[in-house]
Design a binder for these strands. Structure first.
Lengths: 208, 208
DNA sequence: GTTTCTTGTAGAATAATTACTACAAACAAC
DNA sequence: GTTGTTTGTAGTAATTATTCTACAAGAAAC
């Protein structure tokens, strides 16, 4: 009998995950939440065998929640299940302590396999993510420009791409606007871009 | 017994929809597809009582597929289920002939209600969408925002959308940069926008 | 185990932007 | 034909963005 906490803001997605799980773990205890705050609260106050969470949650983002959960309970395994392609977020969430990253496109069997693997204490790394990790080791040769960004830069990049002003970004992240500006410069340098518009289009094209 | 065709590229989402449906329609015939091409193919070659489709599908988009299906089989009801907020796409898909639009956040009961309503030949319109439709009627008749622009404003608008700076635009058009700025202000006012980024996205979406 | 590179942070100075205001010509309405 | 509205144009002042520089902590290289 396993205890599973599921975080996703789309109810059909939650139902889908539950359905897939219950075929394999008929007597599991499942709890659903739909915001980042609830996820953290339930993750820390009850005992779970595994957490399955989306990356984008209302309120606190899934990655934020992941950081918080991992710093309080480093042993608690978290599987991130999101609709973004694996190349995009895979490495990032693994670095943040997740036990695996799957795209919602994955077949149910993959999800089941991942859960089994994670419950037995291992990580679950798909071939796509393994590839990305290898290219990262190969001196960043085959990486997309945006994969060269640090976590903080990536965060700022997405906000700029959305058209949010530097001062607002400063407020959101509680850092000085000049700091935001420095990130911007570094982002543009790493990505070989010159205008916010180009960044917006890049982000759009790569579904960031 | 109803025959349902489900199109979504995320397998967990498909499972979720099926789960919700089967609670209410235990003997339904369900077929899943995950691309726009398959959706159109199955929609046109077999008989269905209802189609439930995501908006963003690989290959041909859900809206494209909807157009195609509706022009071949105007009577076949299609429910669009997507993760985008209702204000955004609701009116668009209804105009394209859909029988309803739901956000994936909606509770399962809403989905069930929508299906019942659609199977009985009616449309299913949420309050949010009804509101949006009313405000559309109150606003400027069916003009697109950019059609309200003067020629000069339109010219400037396209340059801004490309990411060209105001001073460069001033040079290109041989007018003062403050003049360009005035156009910008008027454009934003007429189009109800606030950021260059939003303008870029608008232009992209409308292929300007 | 020191040196180099990266990352997160920010100040000061300069450049670009935006808001507000203005005005004449064209055009529409009455 | 006067009155009101849109359009093309621009200046001044306030606000933002951008460049350049800097520095400490951590990671990586040697």
């Amino acid at each position: 009998m396993i205890r599973i906490l599921i975080a996703d803001d789309h109810s059909v997605v939650r139902k889908g995950i539950i359905q897939i799980i219950e075929e394999d773990f008929p007597f599991s205890i499942v709890q659903e939440v739909n915001t980042g705050e609830e996820l953290v609260k339930h993750a820390l106050t009850s005992s779970w065998d595994i957490i399955i969470s989306d990356i984008s949650l209302p309120g606190r983002s899934g990655i934020d929640a992941l950081h918080q959960i991992k710093s309080a309970k480093p042993q608690l395994p978290v599987l991130i299940l999101s609709m973004y392609p694996e190349e995009q977020y895979g490495i990032r969430v693994l670095k943040a302590g997740a036990s695996g990253y799957l795209c919602k496109e994955s077949a149910s069997e993959v999800l089941v396999k991942a859960i089994h693997s994670i419950l037995s204490g291992k990580k679950y790394i798909t071939a796509t993510i393994a590839d990305a990790m290898v290219s990262k080791l190969m001196n960043d040769q085959n990486l997309m420009p945006h994969q060269l960004l640090s976590d903080r830069e990536f965060e700022v990049m997405k906000l700029i791409a959305k058209g949010i002003s530097l001062s607002e970004i400063g407020n959101l992240l509680s850092i000085s606007i000049t700091t935001v500006s420095t990130y911007r410069t570094r982002i543009f340098h790493k990505m070989h871009l010159h205008t916010n518009t180009a960044l917006t289009l890049y982000a759009l094209e790569h579904k960031l």
